[in-house]
Write a protein that binds this DNA or RNA. Structure first.
Lengths: 325, 325
DNA sequence: TTGAAAGCGCTAACAA
DNA sequence: TTGTTAGCGCTTTCAA
């Protein structure tokens, strides 16, 4: 059932039907009623694709992230979706994984689809190759990178450097001097956190001690085991993720250490993991909701044609004190 | 830059350009090269919207769920997205919340958008009003409900009844006789779990004892406090969610109970929460990935026009034994 | 207030 | 092998 059929049945032209559909005022009340009757009788729904061809927009935004199962991404994506929905946009969920070529493939598809905007959540996207096809994309479609940077894109950044710094400061205030850091694998954001730890330690004239491991519960537990073989007098452990911190706590407790009395631990993300952990983790709220909100708002104004000259916004994380320090 | 411009610049007709774009074989090799040169020179990307108008499909699938931040939904949605992506479909993420009218609004929007299929994940959608507009929708668009039923839709069900039953059986085998159940709020699925508990208790001639509370860590902790005021000799607590079970364990441990020696606890979902919990939870894997996979496969075959006469598939959950029992 | 007609950017049948 | 033409279902001038 399309607009022609409606028009025929109502005995009017398609323009009139279109006017009724779009609530234009220049329609005779009687005509309008007649058309509306036919419309509801057939449960008519206009084709958004056809409308999209005319308006050159399907009112669609894409959210790229490594994996929606990671709570931090889910939290940010959730806000983005709700913000976009309020503005009449639907959101395509793209779980790109960490392989660059897969992200590129997604971007290519989104480019054909003529999405109205793209939000990439996560620092992995900072590492995308600066190819001509990507430049072509970012020139045609407004892009916002959350927690990362990409040439031609606007950014909403989290000050992870300061976030980890706050955790270290908190431990120093509590009297700790030998503070270790557990770095998780690979990303740009993990590197910024490491830098934040090192800078904070340096500020206090303390010796950094860095362990590295997988970003998972097991990674944290395994890291704790390695750490305990040579803890270099450390009384505190700063982790780059709540999940690794939870693993640390679990391993420490299982080996008979008391947390925080024998070993203090901090996490990162202020996730549910931190609250489930016993004792609850002191952690850093990196505010994924705020990040998602600002990304969506920025994208929205870009889609409205505002070429803001503010290339990036920075969100400040906040320390959340739990019982693990 | 559209197909006309390309045609003009290459000195051919738009049909020829279209043929080249779609890799048709009836194009002169020389002509093809000429067109391709123009194509790449302009970094041309065909409009998926225009193609969609012709094919009446934007190759889009929608996933409805209450909230992507709930791990179980995220796990299912992730599989759905990856399955759909493999088949050339993109996935719209719709966080509907628990309010029916909001879900209805989403369905209406998706209907206009002419999505190719809809997957609703969660038993809340069983409670949607059976209005004419919904019937109209499900008649035009293939719909699959995961863990729920809706007239006119195919279903992939989880046997939560058996899942909770398995947890009870496990406790009975361990020698427990007085086993309480913590029911979380509202949904159809929560009711099925409760039924599973009651049936399993009846099977063994045991007296059910049901507490109810909010589906959150705090809900579990608060439930534990209420429970301990009058535990009726119970030595075990079956919970409908890992997160409430984690709250229970936390509260028990904080009050000096040993888990599982003084009080055994089981969860549901086999989530990361269960593994973070100390001791790790005995839980039930309700296999959201399998559910997502089967939903996507079912939807896929429906979209291919196969009107399967198998109206519903049931997935069996599996007990995962941890240290909390 | 209404209708006719020209697009939007593509595909596909039919002719040449 | 190539081009012409008629849609796909809508919006939007421009006339009437």
């Amino acid at each position: 059932m399309n607009i022609y059929d409606i028009a025929k049945e109502a005995g009017v032209s398609i323009s009139t039907v279109s006017r009724v559909l779009n609530g234009k005022r220049n329609v005779n009340a009687e005509t309008r009623r007649k058309v509306e009757a036919v419309l509801t009788a057939h449960n008519y729904v206009p084709s958004a694709i056809a409308q999209g061809l005319v308006s050159r927009s399907m009112r669609t935004v894409a959210v790229l992230m490594v994996d929606v199962r990671i709570p931090n991404y889910a939290r940010a994506a959730h806000v983005v979706e709700s913000e976009c929905a309020h503005r009449g946009y639907n959101v395509l969920m793209c779980n790109t994984g960490t392989v660059h070529s897969d992200s590129m493939r997604y971007l290519e598809i989104l480019s054909r689809r003529q999405v109205d905007g793209i939000i990439m959540i996560g620092s992995v996207y900072s590492e995308l190759i600066d190819s001509p096809s990507i430049t072509n994309l970012t020139q045609r479609i407004p892009c916002v990178v959350a927690n990362g940077k990409l040439p031609g894109c606007y950014s909403v950044l989290i000050d992870d450097f300061a976030g980890i710094g706050a955790a270290v400061e908190h431990l120093v205030e509590k009297g700790h001097r030998n503070i270790a850091y557990f770095k998780d694998m690979g990303t740009d954001s993990a590197r910024r956190k490491l830098n934040g730890y090192q800078a904070a330690m340096r500020r206090h004239g303390l010796e950094p001690y860095v362990l590295e491991g997988e970003s998972s519960l097991e990674g944290g537990m395994e890291g704790a085991a390695r750490f305990l073989e040579d803890r270099r007098g450390c009384t505190a452990m700063v982790c780059g993720e709540d999940i690794t911190a939870a693993g640390m706590v679990k391993a420490f407790v299982q080996k008979g250490f008391r947390v925080p009395e024998d070993m203090a631990v901090t996490g990162y993300n202020a996730s549910l993991y931190a609250r489930i952990c016993e004792p609850t983790l002191t952690t850093v709220d990196n505010r994924p909701e705020m990040m998602g909100l600002m990304s969506a708002q920025l994208l929205s104004s870009l889609m409205d044609g505002q070429t803001e000259r503010c290339a990036s916004i920075t969100v400040q994380p906040a320390l959340v004190v739990g019982k693990s320090t």
